[in-house]
Design a protein around this nucleic acid. Sequence first.
DNA 1: TATTGTTATACTCTATAACTATA
DNA 2: TATAGTTATAGAGTATAACAATA
Lengths: 164, 164
Amino acid sequence: MEPADGAVPSARAQRGAPPRTAFLLAQLGADAADRFADRIAALGLTPREAGAIRVLGRRQGLSQRELAELLGTVPSRLVALVDELETKGYVLRERSEGDRRNNVLTLAPGGERMLAQLREVAQAHQRDLLSPLAPDEQQTLAALLAKLAAASDLTPDGHPGFRR
Amino acid sequence: MEPADGAVPSARAQRGAPPRTAFLLAQLGADAADRFADRIAALGLTPREAGAIRVLGRRQGLSQRELAELLGTVPSRLVALVDELETKGYVLRERSEGDRRNNVLTLAPGGERMLAQLREVAQAHQRDLLSPLAPDEQQTLAALLAKLAAASDLTPDGHPGFRR
DNA sequence: TATTGTTATACTCTATAACTATA
DNA sequence: TATAGTTATAGAGTATAACAATA
């Protein structure tokens, strides 16, 4: 009862997934996050820092509260994070002119360069991660994961396993 | 090679997965782990406790060092964990007669009952998690994840996202 | 001397809530 | 009074290494 290798013998298409599939998903997801964390550690970044840079690359001018919301964290935790990114030259933090209580966060030139490096690292990471699968299998997996994500209420920017 | 439902236009089968697939895997895996943690919290268990019970259900008589190894953690962290499981009546901790330095860990009757409950919870969890997918899609996903897991060096008992 | 379980210490995270400055 | 950012404090979690018992 375990050919399950070639995938989807249509005879038992009714059955759904074998018992440990949700466990596997969690295990592989955590492993993927760990491996990505290792890669960006070589760039001197934590997963959270990388996440902040990635978000700011798409939406410049956020306030710290807005960024905290998008990252799924709390404003007070952003202080040290932005401090660090600022001293590293990746992020600019300026007082808003309209409402001087707000900070306006933008990517510094160094942040843009780091973002480009991050994209390359992410690409290499994904290539290695999915290399056991053939290209068409990779596309199938991507489509199925996208379907699951669409059905859940995960935000595109939201934290993945950014707990490290 | 079947068009796996709505996905995989075979014209671009060469291309592999779209850019954010590894990110999605990490995000969905973390979400799955969180949701499972919520469910077993209703049973009064942490993910780590559930993992220990699950492992002991398959391999009775482990020492604390062996269990630590299987769970991917450190012996000193097992002390409080086993203390808790013992007082809850799920695990028995006895001195080994052969080598009195070792503890022999087994599931108490209450632990067997809890294991049965855990299996039901895991089943419901997976059913809900994968419900956005049709049964044949679920099987396809399971096969692809299994292929990835086989290619990596993840142990069957190893910690998934058991960090909570 | 080496190993198992245990304990103790220090260190890192995190959450929570005060505090300031603006509005 | 309310809000954005900051700071402070306390709490949980973890790693590391010292320790006692046994081999």
